[in-house]
C-alpha cells in the first residue's frame, strides 16, 4: 500500500514551477550577502548604538558577526561589493529580459485586490507587492551605506537625509525592514505556491 501510493505520487503532483537560473543565482547571492551585511552591521551598531549611544541597548552577540568592531567592518566591507553588484546585474537582467514587466507587481495585481473575489489571486497579488517593495529598500540600504562609508566625498547623500544621525537611522531601519520582509515573503510564498514554489526558487 505504502509503496504503491508513493509510486503514484509523482504522477499526481503538479509540476514544480520552473525558475530562471539567473533569478535563482540572484536569490541565493542576495540571501547570503544580505545575511552577512545584516549581522556584521549589527556588530558595528554595537560599537555605538544608534538609539541611546553607548548606554543604549546592545544587540545580543548571537546575532552579530565579526567578534568586535574591526571584524564587523571587515565583513561589512567584504560583502558590500557582492551585495551591491548582485543588485546591479540583476537590475540590468530584469531590464533587458523585460522580467520587470511581468514578474513584478503590476496594475493587474492592484485590480485583482480591488475586485477581491479570488482568494488565491489576492494572495498572489500581495506576494508580488511584497517582493517588489523590498527592491527599493535594498537600494536604499546601498545608497545610505555609501553616504556613511564616504560622507566627505558623498556629502550630498548625508545632506539629502538632513544630517548624519538621520542617515544612520535610515540605514539601520533597513535591518528590521529586511527581517520583516524575509518573514512575510516566506509565508506568502508558502501560501501562494506551497513548498513546491519554495523549492523551485532554491534548487
Amino acid at each position: 500500500m505504502t509503496s504503491n501510493s508513493l509510486e503514484r505520487q509523482p504522477a499526481r503532483m503538479p509540476k514544480r514551477p520552473k525558475q530562471a537560473l539567473l533569478a535563482k543565482i540572484f536569490h541565493w547571492v542576495n540571501i547570503v550577502s544580505v545575511s552577512i551585511m545584516l549581522t556584521s552591521g549589527l556588530q558595528i551598531y554595537n560599537a555605538n548604538p544608534v538609539f541611546g549611544g553607548r548606554a543604549g541597548p546592545h544587540v545580543f552577540p548571537l546575532f552579530t558577526l565579526g567578534g568586535w568592531l574591526a571584524g564587523g567592518r571587515d565583513w561589512h566591507f567584504a560583502a558590500m561589493t557582492l551585495f551591491a553588484l548582485n543588485l546591479l546585474w540583476y537590475g540590468v537582467y530584469i531590464g533587458l529580459t523585460r522580467r520587470w514587466k511581468n514578474r513584478f507587481v503590476g496594475g493587474n495585481d492592484v485590480k485583482a485586490l480591488q475586485v477581491g473575489q479570488n482568494q488565491k489571486r489576492n494572495a498572489y497579488a500581495w506576494h508580488r507587492i511584497v517582493y517588489t517593495a523590498i527592491v527599493p529598500i535594498l537600494l536604499l540600504a546601498v545608497f545610505t551605506g555609501i553616504g556613511m562609508y564616504k560622507p566627505a566625498q558623498f556629502y550630498w547623500i548625508v545632506d539629502a537625509f538632513g544630517g548624519w544621525d538621520a542617515l544612520r537611522i535610515v540605514h539601520f531601519m533597513t535591518v528590521p525592514t529586511v527581517i520583516g520582509f524575509a518573514i512575510a515573503h516566506s509565508l506568502l510564498a508558502l501560501k501562494v505556491g506551497g513548498t513546491r514554489l519554495l523549492e523551485s526558487m532554491f534548487w
Binding site: L65, G66, G67, W68, A70, G71, G72, R73, D74, W75, F77, A78, A79, T81
Partner: peptide
C-alpha cells in the same frame, strides 16, 4: 577573528 581577518584581507 581569523575568518574576519580573512574576509578583510581578501577584499581590502
Amino acid at each position: 577573528n581569523f575568518l574576519s581577518d580573512l574576509a578583510g584581507n581578501a577584499t581590502e
